[in-house]
């Protein structure tokens, strides 16, 4: 069975539009200006972190709260099944597309972060450890 990760009940502050993000090379960018290449290049510099491609396989409403969704991913080359329970407005970064959430209207309303609709088949950026065995 897929593993499940508990999610916090509110979004962290770095997703708010205008938040300053430091890339691995020290460059500073606003969260809304981040591009796919920024994550890829930062992971290349990192000695510990590796970027994985996580494909959205299923999106369901959470049974515990109407504010949450359960997103099932197929992670990495081994297509490991991982489910996460996240707030509807939680933004994921989709390769070549940018920030996307289950409810982009809420994301834009709460964070002012420009956001697309997260859909089955979208390939999100996720992290794993480089030395994961």
């Amino acid at each position: 069975p897929p593993s499940s990760t508990a999610a916090p009940s509110s979004l962290p502050p770095y997703f708010i539009k205008g938040s300053i993000i430091q890339l691995a090379d020290g460059e500073l960018k606003r969260v809304e200006d981040l591009r796919t290449e920024d994550f890829i290049q930062s992971a290349e510099i990192s000695s510990e972190l590796k970027i994985d491609s996580s494909t959205v396989e299923r999106i369901e409403g959470s049974q515990t709260s109407a504010n949450f969704a359960v997103v099932q991913f197929s992670v990495g080359e081994h297509r490991s099944q991982v489910s996460v329970e996240v707030l509807l407005e939680y933004p994921f970064f989709v390769f070549g597309q940018g920030w996307s959430s289950c409810c982009p209207d809420r994301t834009t309303q709460l964070l002012e972060l420009p956001c697309s609709k997260l859909s089955v088949g979208d390939v999100c950026i996720s992290l794993t450890l480089k030395n994961l065995k």
Binding site: Y14, I20, I21, D52, S54
Partner: peptide, 25 residues
């Protein structure tokens, strides 16, 4: 009067979920 304020800077990896594949064996 405008006083300078420190602006928080967040590391890039904070924004990306850490999706760990379930261990099998």
């Amino acid at each position: 009067n405008v006083e300078p304020r420190s602006v928080p800077v967040f590391p890039w990896h904070s924004l990306v979920p850490f999706l760990e594949p379930s261990q099998s064996g």
